[in-house]
């Protein structure tokens, strides 16, 4: 489906680690490494003096696309049955006082209105915004560790494996694990007291002003291993001689990160940050449920936790469905914003 640019980019990616004439050619065309902005098909067609390969007629292309339908049909049908249809059902139920097992009268947008006027819902939106402040930590910490391990450590594999271990702990287990650690008389405070730092002891998850920063740090600990693994994989696509050349030209560590590494792995960075941002809305439930139960008060509740509370704990299924629609809208907004930002960054 792609033109010459697409093929070139894919080929470059497959040959990026090894050497050879193809790589040399790529380097010449693309000095910042393979993960950076490749030469696009549009630019090729507009600047090349000789015409590119002839494109098949539009009708043929459509027929070609139609031919792929049987191959993806099982997946499409599954996606519709398992994902799209239940989602659409949930959307429709948000307009009812949904009471499974009995009559569910149509209530229009009253569930949405109720949430829009709810101080609890407002507090939860503030919580979500606060959690998003963790993005720089969740991104920079694994990135810096990955760079450090990539360039300076002999037993990097072992260190990476150790750092990766928390990733295999499920969020719910994570919450159970950290509850006694962060309790007022838990491991953290006891250790602080025993080392003469008792003045720093705090009710980490029992004080509304501390609970969200604490959760951000717990998430940083939990996700850093995955981030390191992903960024390390991305770093392997950067030409080592580029880093060497930068060093020879006097670039310090920070400058190499800023001007060579970050541009070289920017698509990975965008994807990582997008998923971390989505995670704030979609994947906090297990941790919140087992660590704080949304408390103190609602000060750590996330929107997915509140959907659960409204739906299952309170039995307000219609309200829960409406809240999930809000959640869906927010997630789409974030996804679109990330996509737009990613596009712009790719242009830079």
């Amino acid at each position: 489906m792609g033109g010459a640019g697409g093929g070139e980019a894919e080929l470059r990616e497959t040959t990026s680690i090894g050497g050879g004439p193809r790589q040399a050619m790529t380097r010449a065309a693309n000095p910042v490494g393979v993960d950076a902005e490749p030469v696009s098909s549009d630019s090729l067609t507009s600047t090349a003096s000789s015409p590119g390969p002839s494109r098949p007629p539009r009708r043929t292309r459509w027929l070609g696309r139609l031919a792929t339908v049987p191959y993806i049909a099982p997946l499409l049908i599954s996606a519709v049955a398992v994902v799209v249809a239940p989602a659409a059902f949930g959307l429709s139920r948000s307009l009812f006082n949904w009471q499974p097992g009995t009559n569910s009268p149509f209530t229009g947008i009253s569930n949405f209105k109720l949430l829009a006027e709810s101080s609890t819902f407002h507090a939860i939106l503030v919580n979500e915004g606060y959690y998003l402040l963790g993005l720089p930590i969740w991104t920079l910490l694994p990135l810096l560790i990955a760079v450090f391990l990539f360039t300076r450590v002999r037993v990097a594999g072992l260190v990476r494996m150790l750092i990766f271990l928390p990733v295999v702990v499920s969020p719910a287990l994570l919450g159970i694990m950290f509850t006694p650690i962060l309790a007022p008389e838990g491991l953290v405070n006891t250790t602080l007291q025993k080392t003469g730092l008792g003045g720093l002891a705090r009710p980490w998850i029992d004080d509304p002003s501390l609970v969200k920063p604490t959760i951000i740090l717990v998430l940083a600990w939990a996700n850093v291993g995955l981030g390191v693994a992903i960024f390390t994989a991305a770093l392997t696509s950067i030409q080592p001689d580029l880093l060497d050349a930068a060093a020879v030209n006097g670039a310090g560590s920070w400058q190499r990160i800023r001007y060579v590494i970050v541009p070289g792995i920017k698509r990975t960075l965008i994807l990582w940050m997008t998923f971390q941002a989505l995670g704030v809305f979609l994947w906090l439930f297990g941790l919140i449920y087992s660590l704080t139960a949304g408390g103190p008060g609602n000060s750590s509740a996330s929107i997915d936790y509140d959907v659960f509370t409204n739906t299952i704990s309170n039995g307000l299924f219609g309200v829960g469905a409406a809240e999930s629609v809000y959640l869906l809208a927010m997630v789409i907004l974030i996804a679109v914003a990330a996509w737009v930002i990613g596009r712009r960054w790719s242009h830079d």
Partner: peptide
Amino acid sequence: MRTPYRRLMKSGSAVLATVLCAAAAASCGG
């Protein structure tokens, strides 16, 4: 469509799939 955009679109597709999964999960009871 230019290649990096297509890659971003692929990322976008993954994101969209996540979004749809979220909606489905929110609407399903156990």
